[in-house]
Design a protein around this nucleic acid. Structure first.
Lengths: 149, 149
DNA sequence: TTACAATGCTTGTATTTGCAACTAATGCTG
DNA sequence: CAGCATTAGTTGCAAATACAAGCATTGTAA
């Protein structure tokens, strides 16, 4: 009842439905774009995260993406197997590793920002520049990210 | 060698990252809420869709949700197995079925709008009422839904 | 009418995923 | 320092998922 439904289907005014629809579309595009540069979509998020800041342990890595631990564990396995990252012993704890990108991984990751930006723009193409800023700001607030500016 | 982080992290202003984050959160909530009324999250979307309009074939059903056909096929299997829907022969074509809700399915589906609305509100709780309308309108435009106002 | 393409749907199989149980290391309390 | 809780990460196995190949029906066009 948030919206006046003038022939409009309920699901089309549901926040959750819209988010899930966009999520699926973005996923399809990212899969295609990542295939071009030979990166598995599964490891993409962690590769990008490590590119922003590596030298963290797996728990910290997983927490940033809301991934369960078993998933991060296997994800790092895949990164290591692909030669993109390596586990180094944590000098402060023998039960954890710190994950670092290899040179190969860093080169791969360097290709990501462009792909990410283009994918975002592709899906935002129906919006004006101002609307794009607005929707991102609103989504940040929804997620709980403080925009300090 | 950790990267220098200047202010806001890149991923936090990425449309795609925000959408995927919200998608995962919404999924977690919906799973919990649907468990309360004994509905598998897998069949939820189709159940709701059939509640809005049943008597459509599987291809039409899947198209509305961007689901691949094999998935719709197994999804309808699950709906039928749960006693929520039935396949009736299409009078116009012997190769397709029309899917209809059963009385049991219709009763189950009647519980969905409340759960959906509450889940949406839960995740939108950081926004003002105006902001909620704005974000939904912007997402509709992003998806390509014409808002006939 | 025959042949070939497209539609609608299903299913075998390989891979991915999720849960829970596990090891190992560390922290905490008395 | 003994005992127990917590942290960090891994793995076996069952279930879910995705791809491709399949079948039957319908459309089209020579």
């Amino acid at each position: 009842m948030a919206q006046i439904s003038r022939g409009q289907k309920n699901r089309e005014s549901s926040f959750g439905f819209l988010i899930q629809t966009l999520g699926r579309r973005l996923d399809v595009t990212m899969r295609e774009r990542l295939k071009e540069v030979d990166i598995d979509v599964k490891i993409f998020a962690n590769l990008m995260l490590l590119y922003e800041a590596d030298g963290v342990n797996q728990r910290q890595l997983g927490k940033k993406l809301d991934f369960p631990e078993y998933y991060t564990s296997r994800n790092v396995d895949a990164l290591v197997k692909a030669g993109f990252a390596e586990r180094r012993p944590d000098p402060n704890s023998r039960r954890s590793f710190l994950i670092y990108l290899t040179e190969k991984g860093r080169k791969k990751a360097a290709q990501l920002p462009k792909i990410i930006a283009e994918t975002n723009e592709l899906h935002l193409k129906r919006l004006t520049l101002k609307e794009r800023k607005d929707v991102v700001a609103l989504l940040q607030k929804t997620v709980g990210i403080e925009t300090t500016s």
